[in-house]
Design a protein around this nucleic acid. Structure first.
Lengths: 329, 329
DNA sequence: ATGAAAGCGCTAACAT
DNA sequence: ATGTTAGCGCTTTCAT
């Protein structure tokens, strides 16, 4: 089927061991033969058999990636970031998507372990905690959503900081009557961000207008509906939204009411989802959770764990404030 | 490190061969010992070493997936569909993303081949043709964008049919003055869809209003700008757009002009991108290219090719018309 | 500097 | 029905 080491050896009239040394990084071989054998191997189209190599070394140089988000809007950047970091080390990513199905997840986990991965990244579909996989025989890193077990290592975006940054930005613009329109209360993201918003305002002796966040879902429709509720609650000069979709709905509804953005009301979204932020009129200032960094950091931590240096706890990665016209006159 | 077959054999007081047979599908072993050994293996936490198994069989039971779309909006569904089909056969997907970088692509291809994949799917980031990889030693299937070499096998969405369906839908609603606002001319998608639109209209003795498609980019902004051009061109009762983003821009602009959708002007988008179609007012009728099916079909074809039944040519998969309020009064 | 040989963990052919 | 053994392709001692 394929050119083996022994084929090259035979063609060169030397032993397999010599060819192996010549192609590897051994210096128990003369320059002359090394060059000769390398040239010959290349010419013959020799490709090392990964399975044989891995069988010997005991490492697969492969990490598993278990995602649960069939839509992929959040998981894709994490996955790409992780793929980059893993690929940079010459390793590969085995991808499995469970579609949020627990049965499928167990099955995939089994497949991955049987395949012989050196480590595993589990990628949550939300920032809610994910159940710990426990000891599966190889190191695991939890990404996007933290593991329920603090002894595991997790890499997640720092939502508290993200929400605080958004509010501080609005405060810096001189806004004082700030509303918070966000998603369902059963999302950790909703709760964390809302709590961070209230803490930040309280520190300035302020509170939300109307008091407390407006909880709904992550859609534009909800953003439009919530806008009515906000305006009815009294004067408002800024709205911080739990997602860009909500922010877009809010922006559209405010425009419909004849309010100018940002002169009358400034709007900040969350996620920095380009499809939403740039199509909006005006384009939306937003918090970018830097999901690629989450993926990269998770992958690097995993590789270290594979090499014997595991970590524990939750690492929260900084977010970025991306300024656009919805807060900039 | 891990429990081997020989460990189980020793613990059970039998030979490795017997354990191998007991765990495998051989019937050269008594029911009694089979059950006993299986139980023991499970209890001891035995996991077969994939590398050893693969070394013997010569197959890696792994396929490579080379994507080039860092954004992933189109490639993600294809990838998921392929992952499903591959996983259903007990095989795994090794994922590599080239970020549209050719150097990285070569590098990843090398990594994948060295890893010993049984086959490869290359996933384009647009429906434009992708350069053939030629003979890389394992079967290749081209997905989303067809290979430049007709001897290769490609699976792509049927854009001609998609565009024709959209126009036929509008015609069935009694619309006769149809505009086509679409993307840049250097996209195959733009050209194919526009050509199909014109063919469909011509067959009814009609033509576009204004004559010819309006070419721009894939953004909402362009949709809004184009709307002015369309309205200036004379009376129009429908707009078929090359993307949902464009359709959304068109819809917003029409509403701003006080036109009712769909009573005055019906709008159809392309891609069935939920973020765009459902947030819009009204929600958008759209063509769904069924990208998961593209992925599944590509994967199944690849598995067949791996088993020795390669195909050639381009398979174009049907699209679906998804009805929403932008065409349904 | 090069060759010979053991062995990674598994399966399958052959022997008992 | 069970045990023994060769060998998948490679790396790595250990001899030479």
């Amino acid at each position: 089927m394929s050119v083996r080491l022994s084929d090259v050896a035979q063609a060169a009239g030397v032993s397999v061991g010599t060819v192996s040394k010549a192609l590897g990084s051994s210096n128990d071989v003369s320059m002359a033969t090394r060059d000769r054998l390398r040239a010959l191997a290349a010419e013959m189209g020799y490709r090392p058999n990964g399975n044989a190599r891995r069988l010997r070394s005991g490492y697969s140089r492969t990490v598993g990636m278990l995602t649960s988000d069939s839509v992929g809007r959040f998981s894709t950047p994490v996955l790409l970031g992780a793929g980059d970091a893993v690929g940079a080390e010459g390793m590969s990513v085995l991808l499995c998507d469970s579609r949020g199905d627990d049965i499928r997840k167990r099955h995939h986990l089994h497949t991955l372990l049987e395949h012989g991965i050196d480590g595993l990244i589990t990628l949550a579909s939300t920032t809610d905690d994910q159940p710990s996989l426990g000891d599966i025989g190889v190191p695991v890193v939890y990404a996007y959503g933290a593991s329920t077990d603090p002894a595991d290592f997790s890499v997640v975006p720092d939502e508290d900081a993200g929400a605080a940054t958004a509010v501080e930005h609005l405060l810096a613009l001189g806004r004082r009557r700030i509303a918070h329109v966000t998603g369902p209360v059963d999302f950790a993201a909703t709760r964390r961000r809302a709590a961070a918003v209230e803490r930040t305002l309280t520190a300035q002796g302020l509170q939300l207008v109307p008091p407390g966040p407006l909880l709904g879902d992550w859609t534009e429709q909800w953003g439009r509906v919530a806008t009515d509720m906000v305006l009815r609650a009294g004067e408002v000069d800024a709205v911080f939204c739990g997602s860009d979709a909500i922010a877009r709905g809010v922006t559209d509804a405010l425009r419909d009411r004849g309010l100018r953005i940002p002169q009358d009301v400034a709007v900040v979204g969350y996620d920095n989802w380009e499809a939403m932020t740039t199509g909006s009129r005006p384009p939306l200032t937003s918090i970018d959770p830097d999901l690629e960094a989450v993926g990269q950091t998770a992958a690097r931590a995993l590789l270290e764990a594979v090499q014997g240096t595991p970590r524990a706890g939750v690492q929260r990665l900084p977010t970025r404030l991306v300024l656009r016209e919805s807060t900039l006159g």
